[in-house]
């Protein structure tokens, strides 16, 4: 996943001025940036502030990123730093105003690392999902909705006979599993699994 050629291509295209590539990068990584902001329990106003700074910094850095594949890590670190800046400034102002001490919320690096891995997995899954035929996307969307739709509702909505929903679900998930977007992610993880699982190594 670290060498996801799709991400590398997006960064290269965006730094060359391709707006669509930039939009796709934002769409892909906005959940990562947003989630880290919520980890710091920022207000919406501060989240907007942090988001703006992070994306503007990225725009300025686009041409300079030596390893575009390291982008998620860069985004996560930059977001965490910006969040900390906002939180620290708020706590400083509070101390001056009231004379009270206030502890700054600290988010552990391991939490940020987990968010990066999760964001990579989620981005791969969403990319794979987007590659599915519309019929599969509709069916899977109904199955994962909250609360999930019953087979009767799916039958009413999509016109699939109830007896065929199970087999179609399996076929769609199989397509998802075999998609190129998810394959790239799986290989990265497999390497880690193999290394970690070798008994004598």
């Amino acid at each position: 996943m670290r060498d996801d050629p799709h991400v590398v291509a997006l960064v290269t295209r965006a730094s060359g001025g391709d707006q669509d590539a930039w939009y796709e990068l934002v769409d892909r990584y906005a959940p990562l940036v947003y989630t880290i902001c919520t980890r710091y329990r920022l207000s919406n106003h501060d989240i907007e502030d942090v988001g703006q700074n992070v994306w503007l910094l990225l725009v300025e850095q686009l041409g300079k990123l030596r390893e575009p594949a390291a982008l998620p890590g860069w985004l996560a670190t930059t977001t965490a730093r910006e969040c900390l800046r906002v939180v620290t400034a708020a706590s400083k102002a509070e101390r001056l105003g009231t004379g009270l001490d206030d502890s700054v919320l600290f988010v552990d690096d391991t939490v940020i690392d987990e968010e990066i891995l999760m964001a990579e997995r989620n981005a791969a899954l969403r990319a794979a999902f987007a590659e599915l035929p519309p019929r599969c996307r509709q069916l899977l969307s109904m199955l994962v909705s909250d609360p999930p739709h019953s087979y009767a509702e799916i039958h009413a909505e999509l016109g699939i006979p109830i007896g065929s929903i199970g087999p179609q679900r399996a076929r769609c998930l199989d397509r998802l599993r075999r998609s190129s977007a998810l394959a790239a992610f799986g290989e990265g993880e497999e390497k880690i699994d193999i290394r970690g699982g070798e008994p004598g190594a």
């Binding site: 965006a14 707006q19 930039w22 939009y23 934002v26 769409d27 906005a30 959940p31 940036v33 947003y34 989630t35 919406n44 989240i47 907007e48 988001g51 703006q52 994306w55 503007l56 990225l58 725009v59 999760m118 964001a119 997995r121 989620n122 981005a123 899954l125 969403r126 999902f129 969307s141 994962v144 909250d146």
Partner: peptide, 21 residues
Amino acid sequence: QALKARQAVPSWFIETGKNAF
């Protein structure tokens, strides 16, 4: 999980990112 993580992001947050370009 992946689809929900994307849905949880407010549209104004996405717009902010797009405008930065």
